[in-house]
Structure formats: C-alpha cells, structure tokens
C-alpha cells in the first residue's frame, strides 16, 4: 500500500493527532454532559413526581421549555449570553452546560414516566410494612423505575454524543470541527466526513452495547 501525500491513509496518518484530539473533546464533553444531566435529571424527576405543587410546576415549566427549544439555540444563547454578562466561561463549558441543561429535562421526564408506571400497589405494600416516604422511594420505587428508565436514558446518552457536534458552531474543536479543519487542508471531503461518521457509529454502538449490558443486569425485575 502506498503512503504518499494525497492518499487517504497518508492524510489520515498526518492528521491523526488532530483527529484524536477532536475525538477526546467529543468524549469528555459527552461524559460531563451525561453525568451532569443524569444527576440533575434524577433530582428533577423526583421533584416532578412527588414535590410540593409549586416546585412541581416550576420543574414542569423547565422541562417543557427545554423540550420546545432546539439544542443549537440553547448552546448559542448560553454562549453569547454568558459572554455578554462578562461571565468568562470557555466555549467548551458553555456547550457542556447547555447540553446538560437540555438533557436534564429529558432524564427528568423519563424518570417521571418510569415512576408513574410502577403499579400503585407497590407504594401501598411499602406503606403497609411501615416504610417511611424516603425509604419507600429509595428501596421500592427507585429500583423498579431504574429498570424502566434505562432504555430511554441510553437514548439520551446517544443524543448527547451526537449533540456535541453542535459545539463546533461555537468553536469547540471536537471531532466534527477537527475533521473539517483536516478537510480544509487536504480537500478530501468525502473520505474524512465518512471517517468521522464511522467513528460516531463506533462510539454510539459501544454505548448502546454497554446500555444493553446494564439492561441485562436489571432484567431480573419482572412483573
């Protein structure tokens, strides 16, 4: 196989560090967004399900707001908005915050659905043996809700990974922007976009596999 300038392999090898850097940024920004969104989403899901009604209303408004907004607008708004208030946040973190804020709404709404789908008899049985409210939630409702919330949660994770491409719009050099910068040098448009696409597919398939593994871990919960 020839490794001359102009061949895909040569160009890919030349650009390997740039691309790997991009992939690293994609992975870390996804990771931080997922962690933040999961923690905040769990909390907000409990608020949506059980909290005192004014709090619940607030959470509901937040969720509906986030679900009616394009992520890109959210990212741009966060980025320019923070900059305007002279809050010095690098684009990377502005993007992570916006993505997490968006995904929080999805995690919360999914959790609420999962909690609601646990049969009412479970709560009653938990009451009947004298468990108090936090214990009923923690030992009886949450384990069952987790199983139901897992598939949509994996989906949200995949959306986040794909959503990190939008950070390129505010100048974060993640995998897509890194690929574009490589393309700008060698004009191998199809090759490098296709390669980026393949990398996203591999990442997403891996996450889906991990998700399936986790789901199997919880598959003993049946009715």
């Amino acid at each position: 196989m020839t490794l001359e300038p102009g061949t895909f392999l040569f160009e890919a090898w030349t650009a390997r560090f740039a691309l790997m850097n991009g992939l690293w940024v994609t992975m870390t920004s996804s990771f931080f967004s997922i962690v933040l969104a999961t923690l905040a989403g769990l909390l907000m899901g409990v608020v949506l399900s059980y909290a005192w009604w004014p709090l619940r209303l607030l959470a509901r408004a937040y969720v509906d707001f986030m679900r009616g907004m394009p992520v890109l607008v959210l990212i741009l708004f966060t980025y320019y908005g923070l900059a305007m208030f002279r809050i010095n946040v690098p684009p990377y973190w502005a993007g992570v915050i916006a993505l997490a804020a968006f995904a929080t709404a999805h995690v919360a709404e999914n959790l609420r659905g999962a909690v609601q789908s646990v049969p009412a008899g479970q709560m009653e049985a938990a009451k009947a043996i004298g468990l108090n409210f936090p214990k009923r939630i923690w030992y009886v409702i949450v384990p069952q809700a987790v199983r139901r919330v897992l598939p949509p949660w994996v989906n949200t994770c995949l959306e986040i990974v794909k959503g990190t491409t939008l950070l390129s719009v505010i100048g974060v050099v993640e995998l897509l922007l890194a690929s574009q910068q490589v393309i700008a040098r060698n004009y191998m448009v199809i090759d490098f976009y296709l390669m980026a696409a393949m990398i996203y597919i591999v990442v997403n398939f891996s996450i889906a596999q991990l998700g399936a593994l986790l789901e199997r871990r919880f598959s003993y919960i049946r009715y």
């Binding site: 794909k162 491409t165 980026a196």
Partner: peptide, 10 residues
C-alpha cells in the same frame, strides 16, 4: 447514529 450536523455537511 451519525450526528445530523455531520450529515448536513456531508
């Protein structure tokens, strides 16, 4: 599995 933005550019 491929981000929409990438598809658009592609």
């Amino acid at each position: 599995n491929v981000p929409l933005l990438l598809l658009i550019f592609f």
